[in-house]
Nucleic acid binder design. Structure first.
Length: 276
DNA sequence: ACCCATGTTCTTTG
DNA sequence: TCAAAGAACATGGG
């Protein structure tokens, strides 16, 4: 789940729960998710007060009263939670921050352990170190066009590249390209100005919609492609209406692979580029 | 038992 | 140097 809208939802949760709180202890259940050595992490966190939160793409930052930030990246299966007593700890809690004032524990949950927790000097320093581009909610249409228009690479991998713009993941890129009516295998350099505008508008639309529903895609509008994907294999036999294009009730959504990632398109809305 | 999976990063191949 | 595919990571769930 953790693409930009999920991470923004987590950030808001953390902001309400943890800002103003002092970290009493750092509980490490599985050091695998630590990108900063455990002793350094503990030294940097215990006794510090969380002063605020921010987000860049899929990264969430907890700002600390002495300057550095705690960076959370949720990988493919990361989540955030809170609990009071250890028996109530969510399954797969890998790290927990004990909050001094409320007595709550903030849980970093991650079954598959692709997520990472680290300390960085600042959000900007982390952005530079990881070569992360502008946040997908902040990037302008002109900036996006400038970054894509000289690239002879398939559009879908370009949009997934966090160095171009940060926060778009596999499901969202498919949704964005569907809303913009652009095929994922178009080359960046093949788009015309109008298409860049449509692409930028679609990014804004999809992210704003997802955030407003706290990333609960089951509540997304019927005009969204995601229903074809999510319910693809969970639908009862015989009820396959959701596998058709929201705009073309007789056109089946197609699934195939682009850049190794499962990709869903409407072949009518998103015509393939010539030569494929 | 087998196959798939939301992300990132490295390796290989062309 | 670039583009694209594949693999690796670690594990749960269908």
């Amino acid at each position: 789940m953790p693409e930009l809208p999920e991470v923004e939802t987590y950030r808001r949760f953390i902001d309400e729960l943890a800002v103003g709180q002092t970290i009493a202890a750092v509980q490490v259940n599985d050091a695998h998710v630590l990108a900063t050595p455990e002793d350094q992490l503990r030294a940097g966190l215990v006794g510090r007060t969380i002063t605020g939160t921010s987000r860049l793409g899929k990264n969430c930052f907890l700002e600390l009263d002495n300057g550095p930030v705690l960076v959370l990246h949720f990988g493919m299966t990361g989540d955030i939670g809170a609990y009071r007593d250890e028996p109530d700890a969510p399954r797969f809690t890998r790290v927990a921050l004990h909050l001094e004032d409320s007595g709550l524990r903030l849980a970093f949950i991650d079954p598959r352990k692709f997520g990472r927790i680290r300390l960085a000097a600042s959000a900007a320093a982390h952005q530079a170190a990881k070569k992360i581009g502008p946040d997908a909610l902040q990037i302008t249409a002109a900036e996006l066009q400038q970054k894509l228009s000289r690239r002879k690479t398939l559009l879908k991998p370009l949009l997934l590249d966090q160095g171009i713009t940060a926060g778009l993941g596999n499901w969202i890129v498919d949704e964005v390209l569907f809303q913009a009516r652009i095929h994922p295998e178009r080359l960046g350099s093949s788009l015309i100005e109008k298409e860049f505008k449509a692409l930028h508008a679609a990014i804004q639309l999809v992210l704003a919609t997802a955030i407003s529903h706290e990333a609960n895609y089951r509540h997304f509008p019927k005009s969204f492609l995601i229903h074809a994907r999510e319910w693809d294999d969970s639908a009862a036999p015989g009820s396959d209406a959701h596998t058709f294009c929201p705009r073309h009730p007789k056109v089946k959504i197609e699934k195939y692979y682009v850049g190794g990632r499962a990709t869903y398109i409407c072949p009518r809305c998103q015509p393939a580029p010539a030569g494929t």
